[in-house]
Design a protein around this nucleic acid. Structure first.
Lengths: 134, 134
DNA sequence: ATGCATTGAGTGCAAGTGCATTTAATTCCG
DNA sequence: CGGAATTAAATGCACTTGCACTCAATGCAT
């Protein structure tokens, strides 16, 4: 009986997560799409923008990024391909390990990120404030 | 400054949601896939199994389901098609509104749902218990 | 009753994703 | 040193998904 109740709690918790996730992601996609980005794209740009604080060319390796966004390695590879095609990032060969690839934000990429970040934050504010009840 | 902090909180909260969502969904898919189901499929079966308490043929209309799972109407239409092809549900014409379609679990569907439900609950238990920190 | 807007569901199509595989570079060990 | 095992990233492929559209049935207004 108590077990039944706990189980129902778990299910409710999961449904809540699904709901918040779906609503927020959808809204996020909506807001970013006008700037030619999907939610995943922004996530990657966001990660990249973090790492390049002052030294300018400290770049991430692909799998460093993969560790921070929840995407498969293959999806990430293609995503980076798209970003590159749009001129937002550049792939550079990694001298220490010539299998690796360093990914860097271009100026254009950094600009775009700066432009859309406030938008993204605003959406998070709107969607996460109310817990979804109503 | 305080605004900065609040914003970071939001971002962290969102990252957490993404992480829990990704891990749980992935694990769920993993567990269900052995029984030929994806996470969305199970969600639909779960909804269907709820509605049919005792009267036996009280069925859901497609858009009733769409309201309870976070899928577009078109995705749902195809998903139901797949479930039907696998003999887990049946589509029946709805007499009151001949545009509508009633969806009912078959015996096989109900069986399968009963079989995998404990599995799903177990995964939820495992993944949602720990908040994700380690 | 007739026509027009609306609603429920299915479909063509393009995009993004994961799994399995491939290719290239590196490491490990005999 | 030389070949096997491992690792980084890219690619082929199938599948799911959402958007835009279509088609049928219903409701509404004239």
């Amino acid at each position: 009986m108590a077990a039944k109740k706990a189980e129902q709690g778990l299910v409710d918790q999961w449904r809540d997560i699904l709901a918040v996730h779906a609503r927020t992601l959808c809204e996020l996609d909506r807001a970013l799409h006008e700037h030619g980005l999907g939610a995943s794209d922004f996530e990657v740009l966001d990660v990249l923008s973090e790492g390049v604080a002052e030294d300018g060319d400290c770049a991430y390796r692909v799998q460093d990024i993969a560790g921070r966004v929840h995407l498969s390695q293959s999806a990430l590879s293609r995503l980076i391909g798209r970003l590159e095609k749009d001129g937002l990032v550049e792939r550079a060969m990694c001298s220490e390990d010539r299998r690796g690839v360093r990914v860097v934000l271009t100026d254009k990429g950094r600009e775009l990120h700066a432009e859309v970040r406030p938008l993204q934050r605003a959406v998070l504010g709107r969607m996460l404030a109310e817990p979804g009840s109503k």
